[in-house]
Design a protein around this nucleic acid. Sequence first.
DNA 1: GGTACTTTTTACATCGTTGGAACAACGTTG
DNA 2: CAACGTTGTTCCAACGATGTAAAAAGTACC
Lengths: 334, 334
Amino acid sequence: MTVTLKDVATLAGVSVKTVSNVVNGYAFVKPENRRRVEEALAATGYRPNVGARNLRRGRTGFLALMVPELSIPYFGELAGLVITAAQKRGWSVLIEQTQGTRERERKTLSSLGPHLVDGALVHPEALEAADFPDEPGGIPLVMLGEHAVDVPIDHVAIDNVLAAHVAVSHLASLGRTRIAAIGRNPARGTSSQRLAGYRSALVEAGLSYSDTLVAPAEKWHRGYGAAAMKSLLTLPSPPDAVFCFNDLLAIGALRAVAELGLRVPEDVAIVGFDNNEESAFSLPALTTIAPDKTALAEAAIDLVSRRITGEKSAPPQDVQTPFALEIRESTKGR
Amino acid sequence: MTVTLKDVATLAGVSVKTVSNVVNGYAFVKPENRRRVEEALAATGYRPNVGARNLRRGRTGFLALMVPELSIPYFGELAGLVITAAQKRGWSVLIEQTQGTRERERKTLSSLGPHLVDGALVHPEALEAADFPDEPGGIPLVMLGEHAVDVPIDHVAIDNVLAAHVAVSHLASLGRTRIAAIGRNPARGTSSQRLAGYRSALVEAGLSYSDTLVAPAEKWHRGYGAAAMKSLLTLPSPPDAVFCFNDLLAIGALRAVAELGLRVPEDVAIVGFDNNEESAFSLPALTTIAPDKTALAEAAIDLVSRRITGEKSAPPQDVQTPFALEIRESTKGR
DNA sequence: GGTACTTTTTACATCGTTGGAACAACGTTG
DNA sequence: CAACGTTGTTCCAACGATGTAAAAAGTACC
């Protein structure tokens, strides 16, 4: 059924290795033989057995991408870009979902044997430093997104503190004085980064920080954003602006505001984070921090490729990719 | 660096094959030896080389999933479920994106050699019958979603015609008489199915069909939905209800209605299709056809597994998975 | 103790590919 | 024409695992 090098070789009347040489573009093959081999290749429809080739070469041709859940728009979009970037360099991507739980993240990390994949891009959510394999025997890892953890591995992300600062400064520049935040969550590294940016922007704007205005969110999903927003709006003195730690929370917040009969941005201005595609179409459209996801994906693939092909032991890199504040209706009106 | 069976065997003082036997749960191993091998396995941290094992077994352990784009919520959600379902059966999933173009779909299909993956789930958008490999030499394929094409391969989907019928009947039951549709696209199989359901529901409700009320959409993305809705609303006699062929179009339509200063559902009722997570949070929340995506993913994995492990030549199956009409604010008010 | 049988272990070939060494063919040169 | 370097090809081993079959060890029975 399946065509192997041997079949092609028999048909072309040369040795297996010569066929292999043609397939791999080895220079010194007699034109006559090359032609015959190529004909035989075409005639049989030969396709190399990737497994065998990789066994021999000690590579698998696969990269793993570990994310919480593909159904979360940010990760769906990112995964799509990672796959595209990987494909350009000849890698195939295998996706592992962890639901953002530390247990599953740890399990996934330790299951990424050197035989299954050549390298991995991991986007941890709850992982701690202790969970990372300390012996360097494993495969190259690149961490995506913010790490609270201090592990010596390659890392790509935007400057979360700065981005949060920019978002909140924007709200302050509109003259808002009671600026709340939604998304506090001690288990998530990203949360503390964005919180830091939030605080520094408040300070810079001469506003005071108050714990009451920082709503927690167990998960950064729409429903939790709505719930958090409702509790903020029923405070004795409710906020006139909210910085949500991601767009999903913000979408939930938009709904909560509407359900309470208030208006965005007149009564409450809202800024999100991630620039999900849906956020350009919400009513009102969401002002948000827009990370350059393409740059993120490409930088990550770049780093992991470099680690795999040589440069094994260069010092860990820390790459920052650009972002922009995308101003839309939720802070500026229509 | 890497631990192989040989290393474990040396450490345990037995042959390679005995270790292999222990690893694979072969029954006849002396308890004493089993213990020693297990200790050695633990001590060395042995992990089987998947590539080598698969080379020997003639399997790769991978399935491919071909979708247009992960950044489209429906496919992000579906891919997540497929990966989860596959993992339960011990498969890893490789994702290929085609951007929904026939050229890339065809290319992807033909590149799915039997060595890279053991089977594939394909969600074509523009593919035609001629593009499918006619010789049965390849790997098992399962088609997801609607096929306009008549190819003898396994297939899982909801009943699109019926679902569209249900959606439109719901609009008619609200007393709407000028029911439009958005999403006509001759290049997409799904489009004609949903259009058929739309027409049959109009007939059943005693309403007349009019080409003017069926707006085309080159892509089923939010922006195209907004554009289509705008053109419908500027007709001499605009619709009082719209059936959008997917949720993204509907989300775009919601925005267009709002931008023209009209209200949903008072002026125009809107129904979508797919039940994306975001649709429960749009303003107003979207009434939509909710396919059971989990059932879809599991049925697909089930079919492809069965094909791979035996049952090679059973007649092609056609599995229909359930759906429901999810009624929300866009047709019922808040 | 010998025979027949079962249980346990091992040696060997094999999956499809590629790296390296060995070999063959060729044209050049002294 | 012998010696040599350059090209082109083949042979063999190896990647790490498992299936097969044969060898070894153990058990039961006469």
